[in-house]
Design a protein around this nucleic acid. Sequence first.
DNA 1: TATATTTACATCGCAAACGATTAAATCTTA
DNA 2: TAAGATTTAATCGTTTGCGATGTAAATATA
Lengths: 154, 154
Amino acid sequence: MQINDSILHLENQLCFPLYAASRLTTQLYGPILKELNITYPQYLVLLVLWQKGNQTVNEICQSLYLESNTITPLLKRLVEKEIITRSRSQKDERIVNISLTENGISLKNKALEIPEQIYCSINQVGDITENEIVQFQKTLFKIINVLNNKTEIK
Amino acid sequence: MQINDSILHLENQLCFPLYAASRLTTQLYGPILKELNITYPQYLVLLVLWQKGNQTVNEICQSLYLESNTITPLLKRLVEKEIITRSRSQKDERIVNISLTENGISLKNKALEIPEQIYCSINQVGDITENEIVQFQKTLFKIINVLNNKTEIK
DNA sequence: TATATTTACATCGCAAACGATTAAATCTTA
DNA sequence: TAAGATTTAATCGTTTGCGATGTAAATATA
C-alpha cells in the first residue's frame, strides 16, 4: 500500500509545513519582542492599532481572524502593561473600544526596526528570492480568503 | 511618516499571513479529526508514527520541530486514549520509545480520506492552481530549513 | 409594546506552545 | 576511573487558541 500511504506522509501535507513555518517564524520574534515586553500575538494587536488607530474588539478580531475568547484576555494583559486602555462605548454599551496609551504609541518607534531584522533572518541564506516571497505571500492571502469565507458562512 | 509606517502594516508582514493561514487551516481539520477523537497536533504525531513506525520522543520532536515540553504531555494524552504506548529503552534509560497500539494502527484507515477532504476545501474556489500549491510548499520548506538551522546553532 | 433575534464581548475548560529549569542516564576526557 | 559535559525527557508556569456557552445590550418583528 505504499502508493496510498504516501498521501499521509508529513512532507506531502500542506498543513504541516504551514504549521511548522508559522511556529518557527513566531519563535524568531520571541527574543526581539521580549525587549518590548510583549508577545507575538500582542504585537499583532499593536500592529492593528498602530495602523488603524482606535479599534473595537470586534474590529481587532476581524483583522487578525481571531475570536473574542482569545482577544479579550490578551487585551486585559495589555491593559495591565499599560499599553492600551479599554472602555465601553457610550452609544452602544455592547462595544468595547481599545485605545493606545502614550506608552503604547511610543512603542511603535522601537517596533519600526523589527521587520528589517526579521527579513534579514529569513533571507540570510539567500536561498529565497524577493519574487518568491511576493508570490508566496499572494498564495497565503488566497488561502486565508478561501478559509475565512468558508468559516464565515456557517 | 506614511512611508515608514507601512512596513508595520499587517498586510506587509510575512509572519502574519503565515500565522493566520496556519490557524485557519488547522481549524479546517477540527471537525474531521473530532470524528477520530484526536486533535490536530495529535494527528501530526500519528502521521509520523504511521509513516516511520516506532519512534523515540526525540525523533518525533525533530520531525515536527517541537520540543519535549510540548510533546510529552501530548503523548500522555494519546496513551490515555489507548492510541499509543510509551516505554523506556532498555539499552538507554533516557530514551522513551513510542509505539502504536492496534487501535492506533487501525485509525490510519480512517485517516486516509482526510487529505482529499482538506484539499477539496482549500481548492473549492478554484482560485489556486496545482502548480501554485507546489511552489508554495517549496517556499514553505525553504523557510522551515532556514529557521530550523538557525535555532539549532544556538 | 412585548417578544424574539441578533450582536458584541466575556467566561469556562482544555489542549497546545514554549521559555526556563530540572533530573537522570550516558558519554568524554583528563 | 572520577569529574565534568552532554543527551533525553520531564516539570513548571504563562500565554495562546478555540469550542461551547453565557450575558447583556440593541435591534427586529409580531
